[in-house]
Design a protein around this nucleic acid. Structure first.
Lengths: 217, 217
DNA sequence: GGATAGCGGATAGCGCTACTATCTACTTCA
DNA sequence: TGAAGTAGATAGTAGCGCTATCCGCTATCC
C-alpha cells in the first residue's frame, strides 16, 4: 500500500501523514525505491490510534510521540508517560506553595494512605489531584473533599474493570497498547457517561425533562 | 480595588486581566473616572474561577465565556453549554456515518434506555460517547462495551454524590456556578483518581511497587 | 505643585501547535 | 509518452492565549 491508499483508508490527508512521520507518530514506510515506500496494516492501525488519541483523547502530538515510543520500547516507564498524558495540567511544578495547595497535598496524602494505595507520591496524577483540590479550595469549595471517597470508590471500580478487561480480552503482545487505549479513551468514555448521569440525576431531582433549561431560574 | 491589586491578589498579570475583560470572561470594573475603574471581590472570585476552568479544567477561553454567560443569565440552557464544555471532541457533527459510528450509536441508545436515563439523545455527551466508542471499535476494542455498565454504575455514583453535595453545601444563588465548578473540576479530580487507582490496581495485580516500570517487558 | 507610579483603552505582535502548501526530482502505470 | 502519484524538504497558515507598547490621563506622595 502506498501513502495515497493509506490516506484514503483512514481519511487522513497525505501531507498530514507525512507530518506524523516527521514527528515520530508513525514509522516511515519501507522504501522500495529512492522515492517510493510501502505501508501495511500496522501503519494503518497506528494511524487510527494516533487520530483517536488526538481527536477523542485530546492529547497533543508531542505527548502521543512519547506514549508511542513507550509502546514500542518496553524498557520505557509507561506509567510516567501515561501520567503526563491526556491531562490539561502541565507537569510544570510551581514552587509557590500557598495555603490551599498545602492543605490539598495533605488531603491527597491522607486519601492515598487511608486507601492503602500503592502509589508513589511523585506520581503526576497525585500532583494533578492536588492542583484540582487546591483550585476548588480557592473557590470556596473545600467541602468537596467530603465526596472524595465516593469518587475514589468509583475510580477503583473503574480501574478494576479496566484491568480485568485487559487481562481477559487482550493478547500479551498488545497489552501495553491496550493499556494506553483504555486509559486515554476510557477517560473520554467515562467523562461522557458522567455528564449523561448528571443530566439524568438532575432531571430526577428537579424535573422530568432531560433536555430542559436548568431549573434554578 | 484597582486592577493592580486584583492582579497581585490572584497572580494574574494585568494585561491578561484586560484580555479577559475584552473576551467577556470578566465584567469590566466600575468606572470612577474616565480612566479609572474599581474592582471588587466578585471580580476576584470570577477571575479565580476563570483560571481554574482554564488551568485545571482545560477549557478554552471561548467556552468559558459561554459558560459564564450562562451562569449570569439564568435563561440560558446550561446543560447544553456544559455539554459542549471541557471536552476535546468538538461539537462538529460529521455526517459521514461508517459502520463503527453506527454500532456505537446503537450501543449508546441501548445503554441509555436500559438504564432508564432521562436524557435527550441530542445531548452532546451522548455524541461524545458514541465517538469514543466508535474510535475504540476501529481499534479492535469493540469488546470494551462489556465494561460500559461498570463505567455507568460508577458514573451514576459520582453524579449522585455531586448532586447531593450541591444540594447540601451550596446556597441557592450560587447553585449554577457550583454545578459548573463541580462538573468541570470534578472531572479533573476523577481523572486523577482514576489514574491513581490504575497504578494501584496494576501494582496489586502484577507487582508490588507503585513506581515500577511497566511489567510486560 | 511637581514628580512618579499607575490606570484604561487600543492595537500590534509573539510563541506555540497542528497542520497545509509548494517545490523538486523521481517512479509508476495506462 | 505522459498524467498521476511519491518521497523528502522547506515554508507558510490559522487559531489560541496571551504579551508588549503606546497614549492620554489620574492618583498619590513629598
Amino acid at each position: 500500500m502506498r501513502i495515497g491508499e493509506l490516506s484514503r483508508r483512514t481519511g487522513v490527508p497525505v501531507p498530514t501523514i507525512k507530518y506524523y512521520v516527521r514527528e515520530g507518530l508513525l514509522p516511515p514506510g519501507e522504501l522500495t525505491s529512492p522515492n517510493q515506500a510501502s505501508y501495511d496494516e500496522t501503519h494503518e492501525r497506528r494511524l487510527r490510534l494516533v487520530r483517536a488519541l488526538l481527536d477523542v483523547g485530546g492529547m497533543r502530538v508531542a505527548e502521543i510521540a512519547n506514549v508511542l515510543a513507550a509502546i514500542d520500547d518496553p524498557a520505557r516507564p509507561l506509567h510516567k508517560v501515561l501520567g503526563a498524558a491526556a491531562d490539561p495540567l502541565g507537569t510544570a511544578h510551581d514552587e509557590h506553595e500557598d495555603t490551599e495547595a498545602a492543605s490539598a497535598h495533605a488531603v491527597v496524602a491522607d486519601l492515598v494512605s487511608r486507601r492503602g494505595w500503592q502509589v508513589h507520591e511523585s506520581n503526576p496524577a497525585a500532583a494533578d489531584l492536588s492542583k484540582a483540590l487546591a483550585a476548588l479550595g480557592r473557590l470556596g469549595h473545600s467541602a468537596f473533599v467530603e465526596v472524595l471517597d465516593t469518587y475514589a470508590d468509583a475510580a477503583e471500580q473503574v480501574a478494576r474493570a479496566d484491568l480485568a478487561y485487559v487481562a481477559r480480552c487482550v493478547a500479551v503482545e498488545d497489552m501495553v497498547e491496550s493499556v494506553v487505549i483504555g486509559t486515554v479513551l476510557g477517560e473520554a468514555v467515562f467523562s461522557a457517561l458522567r455528564r449523561l448521569a448528571h443530566v439524568d440525576a438532575s432531571a430526577r431531582m428537579y424535573g422530568t425533562d432531560g433536555s430542559k433549561e436548568h431549573e434554578t431560574s
